[in-house]
Simulated assay, not measured.
Amino acid sequence: MNIKRHHTALLALAGTALALSLTACQSDDTTRKSAPAWTASAAGKAADGGQTGAAGTAGSTDPARAAASKGSTGRTGSGGSGGSTGEQQSAATRVCTARDVTVTAATQGGAPYTHLVLTAKNTSGRSCRLAGAPHLQFLESHKQDVPVVAKSKPAAPVVLTAGAPAYALVKLSDGGVDEDNEPVSAFSLMLEGDSTVIAVTAPGSGVAVDPAKALTGYWTPELRNGADDF
């Protein structure tokens, strides 16, 4: 009888231990399942970027996210470089023709007048690009274009918005009395890329030109000391 009772007590104890073990396993499994669910929720908020708290702070300091944010503003990376883009847009602007500009001439400095300043004003009402240098011929006896001074070439294309001017400095002579100067009351000019001849009236009663000394600079938005001194 004692043996039977002892066996019964052992079975009861084993059943109790098994029940406690199953309860502990179920509790641990519930904890494991609930933890990933919270973590996933926090990660989702951080990815959305608009939440505060520990998860939101971690998301806002993510280097990849910060780089993407800067890139979207256009201030960093290749997209933020305005110089090359601006030059490409300028080069794509249509070239000015004789119908787009009005060209006038004025003497520079005092007597003896050795230089002219040419002004080409965009009167077309839309932007155009003034390429190269003016092609000048002062005298019927000299059909070749006046030589161009290379150092006067601007660093960027000259784009004229509606009403904007560009300038070119022209040397007529050295101002010496012994030069082979000839009087000029008007002269011809052509723009780069256009074969139309523009007749330009010389200022005052005319100018004196030495064909052997005449030079012209490139079109520029403004006259510059050094580059346009010749």
Rank of each mutant, 00 (worst) to 15 (best):
A164K: 03
A68Q: 14
T201D: 15
L172Q: 05
L11C: 08
K151T: 09
S84C: 08
E192D: 11
V148G: 07
A14H: 00
A58R: 13
V95H: 03
T93H: 09
W219S: 05
V149A: 06
C128K: 03
G15F: 08
D28S: 12
S185W: 09
E179G: 02
A46V: 00
G74L: 04
T119L: 02
C25K: 10
T76Q: 08
S69I: 04
P134C: 07
G49V: 02
G176N: 12
R224L: 10
P157V: 02
E87S: 08
Q26V: 11
G206P: 10
D174R: 08
A156I: 12
G53N: 07
A199L: 11
K4A: 14
A68L: 14
Y113D: 14
A24V: 05
G217N: 01
M190V: 00
V95E: 01
G86H: 08
T57R: 12
T16L: 14
A208K: 12
A162Q: 06
A212C: 01
E192L: 02
V95G: 05
P36M: 09
R75C: 05
D229F: 06
R126A: 04
A46F: 09
L189M: 08
G50W: 09
A67N: 02
T16G: 13
P154F: 02
T93V: 04
K213Y: 06
A106I: 07
L18V: 01
R32G: 02
M190W: 02
I198F: 09
P165L: 01
A19C: 04
N225R: 15
D62P: 07
D180W: 12
S60R: 15
G110V: 09
A43N: 14
A17W: 11
T85N: 14
S27K: 14
I3E: 15
T119C: 00
A54Q: 13
I198Q: 09
V170E: 01
A12P: 06
Q26Y: 13
Q26A: 15
A208S: 10
D145C: 07
R32I: 02
A120G: 07
Y167G: 04
A105G: 09
G226N: 12
K151E: 12
T57F: 13
A98N: 06
T104V: 06
G80K: 03
T93Q: 04
K151P: 13
A68E: 15
R99D: 15
A208V: 11
S141G: 07
K70D: 15
P157C: 03
L172P: 10
A47S: 11
A46I: 00
T161P: 01
S41Y: 10
T30E: 12
S173N: 07
G74A: 07
G226R: 11
T73S: 10
S81A: 15
L13Y: 03
N225C: 09
P165S: 08
A47V: 12
K151A: 03
V177H: 12
S81C: 13
P157D: 03
S69L: 10
D29Y: 12
K121E: 10
G132F: 03
S188W: 00
A120N: 04
S124I: 01
R5Y: 05
